[in-house]
Simulated scan of single mutants.
Amino acid sequence: MEQKKGIIILMGVKFSFSIVQSSRALYIFKKLKEQFPDTYIIMRKNEEEKIGWENLIQVKPIVPISGKFRLLKNIFVTIQMTLLSLWHIVSKRVGYVILRGYETILLYPFLKILNIKIYTDYHGKSKQEYIQQKRHLRALFVNNIERLSLYLADRIIVVSNGVMTQIQEYKDKCIYIPNGIDIDAINGTDHACSIKLPDNKKIIGFIGNWEQFMKIEDLCECLKYVNNCIGVIVGEGYKADNIMDKYGEAENIIFTGKLLREDVYALLHKFDICILPYDKNDKHSLYPDYFSSRKAKEYIAAGKPIIVSEVVGRESWLIENQNCLLYESGDPKDLAEKIGILLNDEELYDKMCTNNRELSKIFIWDDIIDQSGLIEDIRGTKI
């Protein structure tokens, strides 16, 4: 049988297990490389975090992105990475390419001419985020690029059933690969927690990027209504400066900023309850089973009980009173009440911890990819 050669390409992120997009690509790459040794991955170079794997191609931007004229610099770096990607595609004579992000659109015409199979890793309509930010010109631009990339793709990798409902016209091209987790990395770490926490407080935590559909304010506000608790919020993102300015002086809230994966997992094991504060007013929340956040799966792998906002888009596998409690999005008093229920019901608390550890086993990366049909599709044994 002919050996399949392929390249995974992400232009907008660095190599890192601490970045969701990068981590997802690295785990898919690791699994595919076991089956197809001539598999490569291209992303931006990370000077801080070293990953010693073969076939990793790190690209250092010729022009540093930071400082003024960032948009112009990003365009220049995108062109740089496009040209370098094309060189590797041609020189290595690959048969398939997995792409993520609208920055890769310049590759599509060349891939079609070269008759290379295109897999697009698609995570939902980006235009909605830009519309909510009132960046309408950017929304129009990105929407047209995404529509073209979906049309030209031979296969579309989707991260959730909710994402698939957004592109029903392409459902026959879709391959379902939700975000997975590395249970051994989460529970096997002996890394010391770098954040000092009080010993006499219950820890209510959140980890991950603050996506636009996360209502971090719910967690911050609810701490006004609970006793003997402290909130620990890891990461940053949408409206981070405003939120930190508003709540940064609160005695019972700790903002850690971005942390490396080992620090995150060490801190996660200190949490008593984990929160998924989805915003009911965000359009993503309206699609059933839309969200497939890595943080939710990391929570359950660590055996933590979860409180999640009751929105249509929340993870369907989080069952009320089995894996989680539900609260009304935008109602911090309701969230505080649910925290109190969990902390005062030892039987319910322990049941959720046990259930969630068991549930996490279905989200192991290797199993998810094996069950997706991606490997068979690359081999050409699945239509």
Rank of each mutant, 00 (worst) to 15 (best):
T354L: 11
D370I: 08
T120N: 14
A301F: 03
L348G: 00
N179W: 01
I183Q: 00
F363A: 05
I41E: 08
I364D: 14
P109D: 06
S293A: 09
V13S: 15
W365I: 10
A25W: 06
T104D: 09
C274Y: 02
V226M: 06
K201V: 01
R261L: 15
N281D: 11
V90P: 00
M214N: 14
L137N: 10
R314F: 09
L259F: 11
Y108N: 09
A139P: 06
N179G: 05
G313W: 14
S293W: 02
C193D: 00
I383V: 10
L343H: 01
K196Y: 02
L268G: 06
E358H: 04
I243C: 04
R379M: 11
Y238Q: 00
A301S: 13
A25G: 13
L276R: 09
L107I: 07
E328G: 01
Q58L: 06
D184L: 04
I79H: 13
K201W: 01
L325H: 02
K280L: 04
C174L: 07
N187M: 06
W210V: 04
L268Q: 13
R44Y: 02
R138S: 11
R138A: 12
I273S: 10
S316L: 09
R135V: 03
R147G: 04
L374H: 03
P277R: 12
Y40M: 07
N323G: 10
R261W: 10
T82R: 15
I183Y: 11
S22A: 15
K30N: 13
T256H: 11
A266D: 07
T104L: 03
F141W: 14
D38V: 04
I368M: 10
A139W: 06
G12P: 03
G313I: 02
K351D: 14
S293F: 03
D172R: 12
K382F: 04
R155S: 04
K117A: 03
G373W: 12
G313F: 14
L223D: 00
N344K: 09
G95K: 14
T78K: 12
L335V: 09
L374K: 02
T189C: 02
D38M: 08
D38S: 15
A240P: 01
I89A: 01
L343S: 08
H284R: 13
L152T: 04
I19P: 01
K73T: 12
K270E: 11
R93S: 11
I105G: 01
K201N: 04
P288Q: 02
I75R: 14
Y151V: 06
P109I: 05
I156C: 05
V311W: 01
C353F: 08
R357Q: 10
N55Y: 09
A153R: 04
K297R: 15
T82G: 14
I57W: 05
Y287P: 00
L359C: 04
L150R: 14
K280M: 08
N281R: 12
G373C: 09
I118E: 08
G12L: 08
I145M: 13
Q3S: 13
Q371A: 13
E2T: 13
K31D: 15
I319Q: 08
I113G: 10
R155F: 05
G124T: 14
Y122P: 03
Y130I: 03
D199H: 07
P277F: 07
S372R: 11
D218N: 05
F36L: 13
D184V: 06
E49V: 03
V226Q: 09
S66L: 10
D184C: 00
I8D: 00
P178N: 12
K280S: 12
S194Q: 12
K283R: 07
